Computed example of a mutant assay.
Amino acid sequence: MSSSTAGTRAGGARGPDLAGGPPTTAGVIAMGNLDARIEGLTSQATRGRLTADGWGELVELTALRGHVRGRIDETERAASLAETFVDQAPRDPRSLLARARLRGLFHRFAAALDDLDAAAALGLDRRTVDEERAAVCQTVGRYDEALALLRQGLSRRQDFRTLGAMARCHAESGEADEAETWFLAARRAYRGVSPFPLAVLEFQCGQMRLAQGRLVSARTWLESAASRLPSYVPTQGRLAETDAAEGRMAVAIERLRRLALISDDPDYTSRLARLLCQSEASAEARFWRAHAGARYEELMARHPEAYADHAAEFWLTVGGDPQRALRLARHNLVLRATPRAHALVDRAMRRVGQCRR
C-alpha cells in the first residue's frame, strides 16, 4: 500500500467513512462476559485446576480488562499472574510469552526479549515470536527491524492480526496516512464478533489522528470505538482531548471528571487539572493536580520505565517542575528513541530555558 494513495483512500480531511463496519456484540454484554470468564478462570486457578491454556487466557484477559477500564492495578495483577504462570510451568513457551507481553507493557523491553528468545527455543511458533519482537522493536523506535519482521508475517498470511500490526508500526513511525490505510484494511478483514479487538484498533487510529491535530478523523475513529465499547476508558479520554481541542471545554471537563473517579491512571487527573486551570477553576485544579502528582510518585517508584514519559508530561505542564520533567524525559529517551520521546526532551529543554531567562 503506497503512501501516495493512502490519503485519498483513508478519507482525507472529512475523515474515513466507517459506517456499515463489522457488527460486534454489544459492549455491555461483552464486558459482562469478560468479567464472568475472568471470574471462572480465577476460581479454577484457586483450586489448582487451571490448564496452561487457561493460565495464558487469564493473563491476557486480565490485562485486556485493565486496559479497557483504565485500571493500572488490574494490569499489575496480570503481570503477577504471568509470574505465577512461569513459576508453575517454566518450560512451557506459553508462560514465557505471557510474561514477555506484560514485561513489554511495563516497558521492560530487554527482559521481554529474553523471554521471547527462551520461548522460541522451547518451540513457540515463529509467527508469534516475530510479531511480539516486532511490537517491542517499534515501541523502542527500531521501525525498520519491526517492519521487516511484520512483512515476513504478511508474506505468510494477511489477516486482521498482521494487517493491524502493520498499521500500528506505521502509526508509531509517524507515517499516519499510510497507517490509516492499513487500519482500514485490518478493519475490513475482521471476522470476529467480540468488540474488543476492533474497538482497540479504532482507538489506536483515532489516537494517531488526534496527535496530528486531524480532529474530524480522530473523532470519527474514536466515536466508532466508543459505540462498540462505551465503557472503554482510553477512548473516552481521547474524546475529552478532542472536545477540548474543538473548544468544547465544559464537555471535556465533565468527561474527564467521570474518568478521574473510575480510573487509577493519573493521566486523566492530570489532564483534568490542566483544563480546570485553563477554565480558572483553580481550587478544583489544585485538588486534581495534587492527586495526579501523588499517583505519579507511586508509579515511578514501582514502574519507572513505563511511566517516565507520562510523569515528564505532568511535571512539564500542570505539575510545574520543568527540571524534573527534563530528567524524566531524558530517561525515557534512553529507553525509547522514538520521535515522540525526542519531541518531549526538546519541549522540556525549551521550557527549562524559558524558566532560566
Results as ranks from 00 to 15, higher is better:
1 M>V: 04
13 A>C: 10
14 R>K: 13
15 G>W: 14
16 P>Q: 10
18 L>C: 03
20 G>K: 15
24 T>I: 00
25 T>Y: 02
27 G>I: 01
32 G>A: 07
34 L>F: 11
34 L>M: 12
40 G>H: 06
41 L>V: 01
43 S>L: 07
45 A>V: 02
48 G>D: 12
52 A>F: 01
60 E>V: 04
61 L>N: 03
63 A>F: 06
64 L>G: 05
64 L>M: 13
65 R>S: 06
71 R>N: 12
72 I>C: 07
73 D>H: 14
75 T>Q: 14
77 R>N: 11
85 F>G: 00
88 Q>S: 06
90 P>I: 01
90 P>V: 00
96 L>V: 02
98 A>G: 08
102 L>M: 11
108 R>E: 10
113 L>M: 06
114 D>H: 01
115 D>T: 05
118 A>G: 02
120 A>S: 08
121 A>R: 06
121 A>T: 00
123 G>W: 04
128 T>A: 13
130 D>Y: 12
131 E>L: 14
131 E>M: 09
131 E>N: 11
133 R>M: 09
133 R>Q: 14
135 A>F: 07
139 T>K: 13
141 G>D: 04
143 Y>S: 14
144 D>W: 05
146 A>M: 11
148 A>S: 12
148 A>I: 11
150 L>F: 06
151 R>C: 03
152 Q>M: 09
152 Q>I: 12
154 L>Q: 11
157 R>W: 11
157 R>M: 13
160 F>L: 08
161 R>E: 12
163 L>N: 00
164 G>S: 10
164 G>M: 02
165 A>L: 07
166 M>V: 08
166 M>I: 06
168 R>Q: 11
168 R>A: 10
171 A>Y: 04
172 E>A: 15
177 D>F: 07
177 D>T: 03
183 F>I: 01
184 L>Y: 11
185 A>S: 07
185 A>E: 12
185 A>M: 10
187 R>L: 03
187 R>K: 04
191 R>W: 10
191 R>A: 06
191 R>H: 08
193 V>M: 00
195 P>N: 06
196 F>W: 10
197 P>I: 04
198 L>R: 05
201 L>I: 05
218 A>T: 07
220 T>E: 05
236 Q>N: 06
238 R>A: 03
239 L>D: 02
240 A>H: 05
241 E>I: 00
245 A>R: 09
246 E>A: 04
249 M>R: 00
253 I>Q: 04
257 R>V: 09
257 R>H: 11
257 R>S: 07
258 R>A: 10
263 S>I: 15
265 D>P: 01
270 S>M: 15
270 S>L: 08
280 E>T: 08
284 E>C: 13
286 R>H: 13
286 R>G: 13
291 H>Y: 14
295 R>E: 10
296 Y>W: 12
298 E>Y: 15
302 R>I: 15
303 H>W: 07
304 P>E: 09
310 H>K: 15
310 H>G: 05
312 A>D: 07
313 E>Q: 14
315 W>E: 02
319 G>S: 15
319 G>L: 08
321 D>T: 05
324 R>G: 15
325 A>F: 07
328 L>I: 11
331 H>W: 10
337 A>F: 08
345 V>I: 06
346 D>I: 02
347 R>K: 14
349 M>A: 14
350 R>I: 09
350 R>Q: 13
352 V>H: 15
354 Q>M: 15
